[in-house]
Amino acid sequence: MNPFTYSRATAVADAVRDKASHPDSEYLGGGTNLIDLMKENVARPTHLVGLNKLPLADIETLPDGGLRLGALATNADTAWHDEVKSRYPLLNQAILAGASPQLRNAATNGGNLMQRTRCYYFYDLATPCNKREPGSGCSAIGGYNRVCGILGTSESCIATHPSDMCVALAALAPTVRVSGPNGDRTIAFDDFHRLPGNQPEKDNTLEPGELITGLDLPAKGFEKNFSYLKLRDRSSYAFALVSVAAGLELEGNTITDARLALGGVAHKPWRDQEAENMLKGQPATEDTFRRVAAKVVADAKGHGSNDFKIELAKRAIVRALKQAAEGNQHAADVFLNSNP
């Protein structure tokens, strides 16, 4: 691990100022990803700005009926929060589908958005990777790419965003609150993460030095008809091969509003608003879901070892929408995905 200095901020403005005054610095929240990356020499910051004393750990109801998730609230505290469980059970399920209890106890909401890809090549300094070392080439293209993306990839990168929580967030469409050297602003969640294009080293649209302070969830939580379906190589503690977050509003059997986002398939949590529009006004039938699923993967492209994800994504979408329409999903209590 590179030598680095560390300071602990107690106010957001101080944190932003401290970071701006140190080149090659990083914010440190729960550290569940950044510390790993530093140990692997993928990240080599020379200064860390410790965030955990900032007053950003609250979860509070907003005047418009929404819910504000503090950037430093842990994933566990967020998942188990009464308002999240009752009003945003999709978020509860997605968070609990990820990582392990120990990691969720340490990981923060802001940090969850900042997770970096799990592409094998990104982590292995012996291999070229455009995301780690711009211009060095993409080893995953033509290599072992089981975990890589099928949608929105580019010639320079086919990495995926690894988060589960962010897939549910993409469906719930909060705004991301940030503070930076040029003041505060909000970013629509769908605009927060980006596609790789020819700059795969950039995971998101944050400006240099900007800090996530929170997420504002809109009032609508799809708490009656939702599903988070995660498919992976083992039943727990594995990143998604494909995951689907679905939320529906129904009048009778007619879909009046819909949200659909996928994980494990793209450089960002993949929300498909055209697919959502296709669902609206349609009967909640398998036929509808199949047509929508086909549309979502219409432009998907496999890269060899991940070709199966196209078919898997299609089937997962159909299953998730069916589960959402059936409306018998609940916020998880203790165990998740362990029931065969």
Partner: peptide
Amino acid sequence: KFGRYMNHNFAEYHVPVNAD
């Protein structure tokens, strides 16, 4: 291409967990 094992960690070399 590299003659190298790529999933050389516990995140990507999967052994069964309790849920399995």
